[in-house]
Design a protein around this nucleic acid. Structure first.
Lengths: 211, 211
DNA sequence: TGACAACCGTAACGGACAGTACGCATATTG
DNA sequence: CAATATGCGTACTGTCCGTTACGGTTGTCA
């Protein structure tokens, strides 16, 4: 899969460097998913990526920084998806927008990459800070801003966007995240959709029924 | 603190063996909280407990089994508290019972022991299984049974106890657990109480308002 | 085309630490 | 008071792995 038409030796053409970097990141992510952070070895990543350890250190600095790069890579992807959803559909029906967000959140948290990266982050304060900065602390405000907008537009009634974002999170995720982090099988896609949809129903019911 | 009036050498009196074991477990927990699982060394535990590494291996078998013993120790304590609360106060007002449970849950999850043990469990399938067996899979049914009892007694209206337990969990915990596991400062006791109480209000509102 | 730079493969260095072995000290047991 | 079973302290062994170093190769760039 990882394109190797040229013989991967010698200096890299400028145009390929970006793609090469992504190949290495992907290899590292695959190793992390398979082995977990504490069993992740630089040798295994190098072998899988068809790279040398020296290149890994030249590009990423250290084992921990390599994993930090993985985290940022993942965070960028998911934050952009959320931003596109919430900003693009600013005029959409909150019920639909929130449902789409809730489904995506549950999807994300049940993905093997998120699981592996969250586990890894818990073993190192630096990685944890990186994950929070790229995840929760970046996506949270987007959702809060959306809730605030929908609220002033009269489509919703949430007095405190920050608090209601946390409520939404709890309704959607429940104990799913901690359970999958502890190794339980994630709910099926069907189950996930049901869980997300029901969470939004409850969220809107609470929003409507109680100041 | 760790009682050392006798000079801790030679064969142990039978009566002291139990207490000695607890001392070692406590020392291990303290080390785990300070250093985390991957930096937890048997030498450090031995030093802190005033024991020898050989004794650690004789009593617990391996590093991983030592941590498993910690997990079981913690799980026993918390499961007994929940059982006492729910069985003892079977006739109490559900509002009060659930509030007490919710406060205790949040308290537990924010405690440094729980945080350290949950982090540790995520690095090893065996430890994770131990934690789930002693925690979630032991306490969950207790709460579900309580909800079922309260429901048949007409004090509550929860058609599916298992699902409503998960809902309660989500309302109480929200994103608190994942954030403290990632190193954020836990909410203050005041904040925790407010969060727990509000969760119960919402739980009861949903229970009353929606089949 | 001729430096030069970056990359791969392999090997070597060094530290950390789980687990084991051993000698001495102390309590139990008879 | 022997004889024995533990338990402490220390030193040792083996292994794993992050990190660095080196030689050979292939592409870029002037």
């Amino acid at each position: 899969m990882t394109g190797s038409q040229p013989s991967r030796r010698g200096r890299l053409p400028r145009a390929e460097r970006e793609a090469r970097r992504q190949e290495i990141v992907d290899a590292a992510r695959a190793e992390l998913v398979e082995s977990g952070f504490d069993r992740l070895t630089m040798a295994a990543v190098a072998r899988r990526a068809g790279a040398s350890k020296e290149t890994l250190y030249a590009w990423f600095g250290s084992r921990e920084q390599l994993v930090a790069a993985l985290i940022e890579d993942n965070a960028d992807a998911s934050a952009e998806r959320v931003a596109a959803l919430l900003e693009g559909a600013a005029a959409g029906d909150p019920h639909e927008v929130l449902t789409a967000y809730a489904r995506g959140l549950l999807e994300l948290l049940c993905g093997e990459s998120s699981i592996a990266l969250n586990r890894a982050a818990m073993t190192s304060p630096e990685l944890a800070a990186t994950l929070l900065a790229g995840g929760r602390h970046r996506v949270g405000p987007l959702v809060e801003a959306y809730l605030a907008r929908a609220s002033t537009a009269g489509e919703l009634d949430v007095p405190d966007p920050a608090e209601w974002f946390r409520l939404l999170y709890g309704l959607v995720v429940q104990d799913t995240q901690i359970r999958v982090l502890l190794g339980e099988r994630p709910p099926s896609p069907r189950e996930r959709r049901r869980q997300a949809d029901q969470a939004v129903e409850r969220f809107l019911a609470l929003s409507a029924g109680l100041g």
